[in-house]
Simulated assay, not measured.
Amino acid sequence: MIDSLPEFRSLIETVKKLAEADEANDVLSLLGRSEITIRQTGYDNWNGGIYFYTVFFAVEVSQFIEFRNDLEGWEKIMLEYLQLPVRHLENEEISRVTLVPKSGIASLTEPNPSRPLSSAEVRDKDHLTQYLNKVSEDELTENILMPLFRHLGFQRVTVTGHKDKQLEFGKDVWMKFVLPTQHLLYFGIQVKKGKIDSAGLTKTGNNSVAEVYNQSLMLLGLAIFDPDIGKNVLVDHVIIVAGGEITKSARLWLGSQLDAVQRRQIIFMDREDILNLYIVNNIPLPAAALPPAEPENDDLPF
């Protein structure tokens, strides 16, 4: 993957050599004076999956002022240089370059799901809540969770289990997270549309925690294939995601059934977590979650 640190460094070195060959001194200056990072910002499931990346150039404010009047032109130039070495890749594409002042990055605060929401955010949260009330489990996974986890920095967010019912044991999504040390953590996500409770017989739309427990154990013991490294790996953590509430009694029951090691491998995420993370990270709502557009007023002004 071109967003891995070794491959990205190699890509930047290749771009520098191309700029040297073109005697593009301004490009070389920008490359040498910028903090350059890459982030996956899109995904298309066409042709086995295509990953889209944005490359960010963080420059000093004084230099940013020099580029300000022609930001789009500079971003286009850098995009052409970056796309050239990876044009042979069928499943990865650098789709955008963004120049930003370093002070702008430094002033960004980490999204806090516990902070008070603005009136606009409360409105969006209401729209998303209504959408969650009517979505299927597949729609919850593909339209809500996959964009959310990609935005949070997870890589290779891959859906399994729903189209192939033989895999329907809770192995809904797997993904990985790259630590600053470049070590990898692998996550399996077990998605349930409704509420998870500890009752012996659950109401329609609810899920029994005993079923979740069995599926979690199966997921922790299964290997997944990571195509980036070409081998099977084990899941480090299971995230139990519910489109409804995960009751306190269900959490306690599940914790009592797991040993100390397994308890550290289980992460809970219910509806309120999904809503708050989605809103504070300013992720666009799915089209189906937006209210219908108001009809235009065709009345004549006289």
Rank of each mutant, 00 (worst) to 15 (best):
Y131I: 09
G32W: 08
T41K: 06
L18T: 14
E90G: 05
Q40S: 03
L82S: 02
Y131H: 13
R39T: 07
L117H: 05
E121L: 04
I77R: 15
K76H: 08
V55S: 04
A58S: 15
S119T: 08
N45F: 10
E20C: 00
S34K: 01
P101H: 10
L89S: 09
S118N: 04
G48L: 08
N91D: 13
R123M: 10
L99P: 00
L140N: 05
E139L: 04
H88A: 13
E121N: 06
D70H: 03
L140A: 06
T54E: 12
A24Y: 09
E92L: 04
P101L: 09
P116I: 11
Y53R: 07
D126N: 13
A24V: 02
S29V: 07
F57T: 07
L140D: 06
E110K: 02
S62W: 04
T129I: 03
V100M: 14
E139Y: 02
G73C: 03
F57K: 02
L18W: 03
Y51D: 07
L132T: 08
G32S: 12
I38A: 07
V27C: 14
N91C: 01
E137Y: 03
N25G: 02
E72L: 08
I50G: 04
V61L: 06
L79A: 09
G73R: 01
I94S: 04
H127L: 08
I36S: 09
F56G: 01
V86M: 01
Q40M: 12
V27R: 05
T129G: 01
F52W: 06
N91P: 00
I36R: 05
L108F: 04
D126Y: 09
E35S: 11
S107H: 04
V55C: 04
A21F: 10
S103I: 13
L28E: 14
V55A: 10
V86A: 04
S62G: 01
S34R: 00
E93K: 09
T41G: 03
E35M: 03
W46V: 11
E139R: 11
G73H: 02
V15L: 14
V135Y: 04
A19G: 01
T14G: 03
K102L: 15
I50W: 05
D70F: 00
E72D: 13
E72P: 00
K17M: 15
P111N: 12
E80Q: 11
A106E: 14
N112L: 05
L89W: 05
H88R: 13
K134R: 15
E121S: 05
A106T: 09
E20T: 08
S136M: 03
L132Y: 03
G42A: 06
D124S: 11
G48M: 08
L82M: 14
T14H: 12
N45Q: 09
S114C: 01
I65H: 05
K16L: 10
H88S: 15
R115A: 15
V122C: 07
S118L: 11
T37R: 12
V55N: 00
